[in-house]
């Protein structure tokens, strides 16, 4: 991400390589047409987001309270219900893709 290409007006633009890199990070495969389309659209959208630079630093006070309940065992989903939507299961476990 450090090799951000600069467009003519000096604003950060997004090139196809960068779209591919982010798609890789997000585990979303894209075809070449989608990469080109996204590169053009992301340029416009990120340029619009750049106006956030004008926002003053603002104090952010969060009024947080602890909402955790005591750790007492409650009824949850049965194993059968938890597995019901999985594409592949074995002996009561989810089966994932191979690791490598």
């Amino acid at each position: 991400m450090s090799d951000t290409a600069a467009s003519d007006d000096g604003e950060a633009a997004v090139d196809a390589e960068e779209v591919r890199h982010v798609a890789d990070l997000a585990r979303v495969r894209l075809d070449d047409d989608e990469v080109d389309e996204f590169a053009a659209q992301f340029g416009d959208i990120l340029e619009y987001f750049d106006a956030l630079d004008e926002v003053p630093e603002t104090e952010r006070e969060e009024d947080l309270v602890n909402v955790m309940r005591p750790d007492e065992i409650e009824e949850g989903l049965s194993q059968e219900a938890a597995l019901a939507n999985a594409e592949e299961t074995e002996d009561g476990f989810f089966v994932g893709p191979k690791v490598s």
Partner: peptide, 8 residues
């Protein structure tokens, strides 16, 4: 996809 990628 657009929003996941831009968020990432």
């Amino acid at each position: 996809k657009r929003r996941i990628l831009l968020g990432t």
